[in-house]
Design a protein around this nucleic acid. Structure first.
Lengths: 152, 152
DNA sequence: TAGTATACGACCAATTATGTCGGCGTTTCA
DNA sequence: TGAAACGCCGACATAATTGGTCGTATACTA
């Protein structure tokens, strides 16, 4: 119901965790999982997905683990969600893929597709860095302003 | 995965259908369901929810059915979705209700709550009327512009 | 070569979404 | 006044998706 999956949440949390520790060479899935109390094996799979998507670099063996493949500032929340949950569409039937076979009636979808794009735009404007900075509320890190326009 | 449920879709479709027929006194759940080829009993339940939420007025008995309780322009997509799917939150754990009991670690959530508000704002700015108008693309109905700002 | 790590597919469990059934109350109209 | 057309409601049943586990293979380090 218009909600992020836990996997996406976990993925964002993990990337944020890595972003907060730029000095470390790599962190294992277990390290991160323990830090948040989430299932290690599940997180491992998520991190593997992020690796395949090119957001992380992995290294096996002792002292191996995962590290951001780019600057935290250069990784958007959208990319993370997309890598984990696949392309998202607010509407069940997207005009892109075959459309609503059964209901050629879904005329609602066209306006909602705009909403979809708007949300995607917002998510694209948020970086992992933004998430990590919010860890220090007193520091009052620099404000990011994203402006999105929706024309129906 | 950040997607509207079919119920919400159906609800929006039904309201749009009603909005396109302002002259009719009332339409039965079956009429609308048949028009779109969706399960009548399911739609009936959805319309009942919308009635309870005050978006529709119902009338039992022969020639009964449902009608918008307000102008289509005065009913937002947000209200419809909210009435059907309940309050939506992008994050699994909302700081409102108890927060993440198990993970006091969900620091991601705070920035994402902003995203949530942004999406809600967009949805609030779209009326059933907007959906209905899009039925006539050649008419090129008047453009609605919603501007949303997101400050992290 | 032992130990620590990722990689990946298969599988099961839990949750949620979708749809159905049956009975009841209301209104209309012949 | 009673049958037909409708809404109302709760309890199911079924399907789909998510969340999580297991086992095994592979890679790297010391």
């Amino acid at each position: 119901m218009l909600k992020l999956t836990k996997k996406a949440d976990y993925g964002l949390m993990a990337l944020k965790y890595l972003a907060e520790r730029p000095e470390t060479v790599a962190l294992s899935a277990k390290d991160i999982a323990d830090a948040y109390g989430i299932p290690a094996q599940l997180l491992a799979k998520i991190l593997q997905q992020l690796t395949r998507a090119g957001l992380l670099r992995s290294h096996a063996g002792m002292n191996g683990g995962y590290a951001l493949s780019r600057e935290a500032r250069e990784i958007s929340a959208y990319e993370v969600i997309h890598a984990i949950d696949g392309p998202f569409f607010i509407t069940s039937c997207t005009k892109g893929a075959k459309g609503c076979e059964l209901t050629p009636s879904c005329t609602i979808k066209e306006p909602l597709a705009r909403v979809n794009d708007t949300i995607a735009g917002v998510l694209k404007s948020i970086s992992i860095q933004d998430l990590a900075e919010h860890e220090h509320p007193h520091g009052r890190g620099h404000e990011v302003k994203a402006l999105v326009s929706l024309t129906l």
